[in-house]
Design a binder for these strands. Structure first.
Lengths: 144, 144
DNA sequence: GTCAATGCAAAAGCTTTGCAAGCGC
DNA sequence: GCGCTTGCAAAGCTTTTGCATTGAC
């Protein structure tokens, strides 16, 4: 685990304790797995990564913990097309996703202009946006 | 069934036959259910609506038929947050969706500008977009 | 010590599939 | 008539849940 990851982990732990969330070995293992992931792992992948730190983690606990973390706003859940849900820490600025259809890679991007247009559209329709989902699915351009 | 719906149904049937898709009573019932729906029904809802025309339709056939129709580009499948997949005929211009979190209503909208920005973003990242998903989830503004 | 969190296994919810019978073309 | 389509029931997958036990605070 890198120093940066350890710092993130410490911070997450403090924040969660402050919210009254109980910290268990399993939860720390799952948080560590999240902090150590730069991709967008599935529950199964998080189970495997958590077990490297604490083999006692079960899939049920991964799901229950993710549920708690999503509730508290610590984790974001993504339901990309195709497979099961994918998770990521919410400690980054808001962003949307571009999914590489060939490799499954997920690229994060942001666009103030698109965000703004979404607000305008909702406004015209008489709505307040609570959250949104923008996913681009594509293939890398051939190198020329 | 309105005259307009009957026309849509005729057209769908012709197109599918032209593509070599076999037309069965069940498939016609499912197509009619789709043509007669202005909302975005689930497979279960389509089953119920199809059975009004042909009670022999089974859920397995609804799914298998939808699969054929999605393959042929006749139907679009939406995986909105929350429940199961929702379907709609693809015979309208491209649009995105705003989902009312209180009522579940789905409002369609289009924005050339957002589409264009998406293209630009993909371009910058070196990708060609194959398809995308843009969903706004919100609540109706309070009337003042 | 109390009450929440865990592991396990069973269940749930949606969707798919194997198989024998039926039916479109 | 041939081969695709159907209904039924069973199975698949991901996610959730009941229950007895463990463990955090």
């Amino acid at each position: 685990m890198t120093t940066a990851e350890a710092e993130i982990l410490d911070e997450l732990e403090s924040e969660l304790r402050a919210e009254g969330v109980r910290i268990t070995r399993q939860r720390m293992a799952i948080l560590a797995a999240l902090a150590g992931s730069t991709d967008h792992p599935t529950a199964e992948e998080l189970l495997a990564r958590s077990r490297e730190r604490d083999p006692s983690v079960s899939l049920a606990t991964v799901y229950r913990t993710l549920s708690v973390l999503v509730e508290s706003g610590t984790v974001l859940r993504n339901d990309f097309e195709g497979a099961g849900a994918r998770f990521e820490l919410a400690n980054k600025p808001h962003h949307d996703h571009l999914i590489d259809l060939d490799t499954g890679d997920v690229i994060e991007f942001t666009s103030r202009r698109i965000e703004k247009l979404q607000e305008e559209i909702a406004e015209e329709l008489g709505y307040d946006i609570v959250f949104h989902r923008l996913e681009l699915y594509g293939r890398a351009k051939k190198k020329v």
